[in-house]
Simulated assay, not measured.
Amino acid sequence: MEKVPAAAGVTLPCVPAAAKTARDLVRTRLLHAGLTEVSDDAVLVVSEIVGNSVRHSGTRYVRIWMTCTGRVVRISVADSSRTLPTLIIAGDNDDGHRGLGLVDALSYRWGADLLELGKVVWAEFEVAPPVASGNSSDLGELATSQSGTVHGVALREGDQRRAAG
């Protein structure tokens, strides 16, 4: 897998326009790395996670980055709110509460890590094995700390996803 420049991570104002920037970042980095098989799902998921941060965090900035290790692409979104996301199953007549349901349905697994100064919400996508074996590809900077509480990994019957942690 080709190494992607460290510019894959970006800090943005926590405003609605950040979702479009995040979608563009994810699509471009996955295309550059030859990982287009997860692009559509990853773009929708990052948009939902950034949108949740914009709507619910009350913070000034959001940080987005991507990493790829082996067969897993991880998209991470950090903000300075310590409120963890909650998966709500929307009813047929509900106008909202579908975002994390989409994240759950489209990603291999997802969760949130509570940090000293906020949280990171992440989603992972499985990709085809790399043609040549080697080290992990860096699709952006690594999180300085990803320890904390995992939250929001909803496993369904017959689901092959593993709980994180």
Rank of each mutant, 00 (worst) to 15 (best):
E2K: 13
E2Q: 15
K3Q: 15
K3M: 06
K3V: 08
V4H: 06
P5R: 12
A8E: 11
G9F: 07
L12W: 07
L12G: 15
P16E: 14
P16F: 06
A18N: 09
K20Q: 13
K20D: 07
R27D: 11
R27E: 12
R27A: 15
T28I: 03
L30N: 03
L30D: 04
L31I: 15
L31M: 11
H32S: 12
G34N: 02
L35M: 08
T36M: 15
T36E: 08
T36S: 15
E37S: 10
S39M: 10
D40Q: 04
D40F: 05
V45T: 08
E48R: 15
E48T: 11
I49W: 01
I49N: 01
V50F: 01
V54D: 00
R55G: 06
H56T: 03
H56I: 01
S57M: 06
G58M: 03
T59L: 00
R60N: 12
I64H: 04
W65V: 04
W65T: 09
W65R: 05
C68N: 12
G70V: 09
G70Q: 04
V72N: 05
I75V: 06
S76R: 14
S76Y: 08
S76V: 07
V77K: 13
D79P: 02
L84G: 10
L87P: 05
L87Y: 13
I89G: 00
A90V: 05
A90F: 00
A90T: 00
N93H: 13
N93G: 01
D94M: 05
H97V: 07
R98H: 12
L100P: 08
G101T: 10
G101V: 13
L102M: 08
V103E: 03
A105G: 12
A105I: 04
S107E: 01
R109V: 06
R109W: 10
R109Q: 08
D113W: 13
L115F: 14
L115A: 02
L115K: 09
G118I: 02
G118F: 00
G118M: 00
V120A: 01
V120G: 00
F125K: 07
E126S: 13
V127S: 00
V127C: 06
P130I: 01
V131F: 11
A132V: 13
A132E: 15
D138V: 13
G140S: 15
G140L: 03
G140D: 12
E141M: 15
E141Q: 14
L142R: 15
A143H: 02
S147N: 05
S147L: 15
T149W: 05
V153Q: 15
R156C: 03
E157G: 06
E157N: 12
A163R: 14
G165M: 11
G165D: 09
